[in-house]
Simulated scan of single mutants.
Amino acid sequence: MSANKRVSTIAIYALLIIFGFIFAVPFLYTIYTSLVSLQDVNKFAELSDLTFKNYTLFFTNEAYNVPKWLFNTVIITGLVILGNLIINPMAAFALAKLEFTGKKMVYWIVVATMMVPYQMILIPVYVNVAHLGWLNTFTALTVPFLYQCLYIFMLRQFFITVPGEFIEAARMDGLTKMGAFWRIVYPLAKSPLITMSILAFAGTWNSYLIPSTLINIPEKYVLVVGLNSLKDAFFENTPLIMAGVVLTTLPILVFFFIFQKQYIEGVSSAGIKG
C-alpha cells in the first residue's frame, strides 16, 4: 500500500470515528442521565453515584405497569414479524416468478400503496377495526400489519435475481411451486428477510400513533404508549424520562447489532432491478 493511499485510508477511518462519536453522543447522554439522580443532571457525577434506581422504579412500582407494557410490546412485535416473514415472501415470490392474470396491475398497486402515508388511511383503518370489534385488542395491532407493501417490493427485487433454473430443477425433482419456494428460494433470501425483520421490529416496537389510536385501555398499552402516558407526571424528573427512552431504544440497537451484517447484505441485494 502506497503512502498516499495509507494516509487516505487513515483519514477516512478518522472521519468515520469522529462522525460515529458525534451521532452516539445523544444516546450516551441519555444513558448517563438515566443513571444519575435528579440533582446530578447536567453535571459530571462520580462513578459511585450512578444508580439503576430509575429502572428499578419502573419495574417495581405497580402504578407504572411497565412489565405488562413490555410484555404486550414483545408479543405484538413478535406476531407482526412472524406474519411478515410468511406473507411478504409469498406475495413477493408470486410477483417475481409466477405468471397470473393481473400480475402487473397488482405490482403497481403495491408500488402505489408504498407512496401513501399511513396517516392518510388511519381513519378508514380505525373504522374497519371498530366494525370488526377489534378495538382494544391485540388483533387490531397485529392483523392489519402482518404484511407491508414496502417489504413485498424489497423481497420481489431479490427474488427476481434468483435463477429460474433453481425452481425448474426443484420441480423436476417432484416439488410443487410452493415446495420449491419454501425449500429452495426462501432459504436463499436470508439476508433480505433479516433486513425486513429489523425494519419491522423497529417500526412495530417504536410505533406510537397506531397503538394510541386503537387502544385506550392502560393494561393493553404497548411500552411506548404506556411510558408516554407517564411523561406528564414525571415531566421534571429528567432521569426517569431518560430511563424510559433507553428502555424503548436499547432493544432495537441490540437487535440491529446482532444482525447488522445480514442487514447490510440485504440492503445491497434488494436493489432496483426489473
Rank of each mutant, 00 (worst) to 15 (best):
W108D: 14
I86N: 08
M115E: 13
I109C: 07
I87Q: 09
T101G: 12
K104V: 09
F100T: 10
M115S: 13
A112Q: 04
V111E: 00
F93K: 01
N84W: 04
T113C: 08
L85C: 06
V106R: 11
Y107G: 00
W108V: 13
K103C: 08
A91E: 08
V111L: 11
Y107D: 00
A112E: 04
A94I: 01
A96H: 00
T113V: 15
V111G: 03
W108P: 10
M90F: 08
T113D: 10
F93S: 03
L85D: 02
N88F: 03
N88M: 08
A94M: 03
L98S: 14
F93C: 03
I109W: 06
A112N: 05
M114R: 08
Y107C: 00
K103D: 06
F93V: 02
N84F: 04
M90E: 01
F93Y: 07
I86D: 09
A91S: 12
I87Y: 11
I86V: 13
V110Y: 06
K97G: 04
M115H: 12
G102S: 07
I86M: 10
Y107T: 00
F100S: 12
T113Q: 14
Y107A: 01
N88H: 07
V106Y: 14
T101C: 13
A96Y: 01
L98Y: 13
W108H: 10
A112R: 05
T113A: 12
A96F: 01
V111S: 03
N84T: 05
A112F: 07
V106P: 07
M115W: 15
M105K: 13
A96C: 01
M114A: 09
M105R: 10
A96I: 00
A112C: 06
G102N: 07
M105D: 09
A92M: 04
I87P: 14
M115T: 15
V110H: 06
L98D: 13
M115V: 11
K103W: 00
A91Y: 05
L85P: 02
I87R: 08
A112W: 05
A91C: 10
I86G: 08
T101W: 13
